[in-house]
Design a protein around this nucleic acid. Structure first.
Lengths: 232, 232
DNA sequence: CGGCCTGTTGATGCGACTCAATTCAGGTGG
DNA sequence: CCACCTGAATTGAGTCGCATCAACAGGCCG
């Protein structure tokens, strides 16, 4: 079983380039933990006991307000880690994690992981790189929320997703929203009604096509401009 | 001169607990760089050559939109580091840094610093902790921008600042805004006119007093509620 | 078939940005 | 010392984007 885990860990960015013995030590640490759909994996503000690797399923990291609105900080897919940030400060989780579907995860308890971290320069370096990318991601979201309107955020999301799946942006490329539009709305910092209208507007402009969660890019250049915040 | 630098470095959180030889090595790396008021220290999107410690003055890290609006991601004060995030990914700066007053800094070039980082577990750990706190800070800002209105953000800012200076929140405690209200507005993700009105409303409610950038807290409990987003 | 969840569309209201006018404070030069 | 200028801060009126509330259509499942 521990061998299986080591094989899995090799696929995780955070653990890339680690010597065998480090991987083995990590594999000994890891605890399999599974969650049904809609289960809360951890709560914002609770003492962070460790972090997770998602093996299968989808997880959302959310902030929610007293009156029931929620903002999705990050959508986590397979082979990504989450809850890492809390580990370092031996602190609390900065957001709540919820399983969007049935999930299989590996859990790494804080204290022994920190010991490994101290012993492995490569692991430290990977961790720093991971957190760098998270920081970069968050600053982009802040930029969007503070300076851009919904149409620009949606356009940016589509372009990002397109580059992620196809490595480029070109006419007639198709991207799949594999989340509900309600969730996408929370991720973009708005609500489903507004997202619906914004999508309709982009369709009417001929910039994109959309049906049943499949978006086709029609006018890449226009889409780039909208993402930059240039008025149409 | 190198001795002076080492003495300075001891005061930086990022370098706390480091052995003498590491401090000495860092001191040899550090380059003094000064900037006049309004100078751009680095531009968003440019290759990150290294990071900075602010010794004297004040710096803003900003995102700006094509039409001239700007959002202040972070206000940097003496003894704080900035530009750290970019170093790890050997990547670009995620925001633009501007001197708000004449500034003295120490600059650490990326490549040699990374070498030191690999060699010093303690330095790695400090760096991770620093980035953790940045992440935490950014998630709070995202929460505010996406879920709270301006009055709540302002209330939270006042409470944070109060706790930071006095260690507690109590009636008649005074905090100093040592930045212009225009800058504070950008930091809160709004504009000076709206900030002005919001401050006026809080004054009218008797929650705070304010004159010439000095804010006196009158109703801590009410202020906490406003910060939580509870309607008045 | 009826319930439920997701998504769409319309009408309305509120918060915040825009534009413009005015006041105020700090700094400069006569 | 006062007149002048400049940038910051305030205040008012108007507009816009988006959230809210509400009604309704479609797909899925018991």
């Amino acid at each position: 079983m521990s061998e299986d885990k080591a094989a899995i860990l090799r696929r995780i960015y955070l653990f890339s380039g680690l010597p065998e013995e480090d991987l083995a030590a990590l594999a000994r640490l890891a605890v399999a933990r599974n969650f049904p759909k809609d289960a809360v994996i951890f709560w914002e503000g609770r003492q962070a006991a460790g972090f997770f690797i998602l093996l299968e399923g989808q997880v959302k990291l959310v902030k929610s307000s007293p009156d029931g609105k929620e903002y999705i900080l990050r959508l986590v897919g397979p082979w990504e880690t989450f809850g890492e940030a809390a580990v370092l400060a031996e602190d609390v989780y900065p957001a709540t994690a919820v399983a969007l579907s049935d999930c299989r995860t590996l859990f790494f308890p804080t204290a022994p992981f920190l010991a490994l971290l101290t012993a492995s320069p490569r692991l430290s370096r990977n961790m720093l790189a991971t957190m760098s990318r998270l920081l970069y991601h968050l600053t982009r979201q802040l930029e969007d929320l503070s300076l851009k309107e919904v149409s620009a955020r949606l356009a940016r999301f589509i372009l990002d997703k397109c580059r992620e799946t196809h490595g480029q942006v070109a006419p007639d490329l198709v991207i799949e929203l594999n989340i509900s539009k309600t969730h996408l709305a929370s991720y973009l910092g708005t609500i489903s009604e507004t997202l619906s209208r914004t999508l309709a507007r982009l369709k009417a402009l001929g910039v994109i096509n959309e049906e049943k969660g499949r978006i086709t890019i029609k006018e890449p250049q226009l889409l780039e401009n909208i993402a930059r915040g240039i008025k149409v």
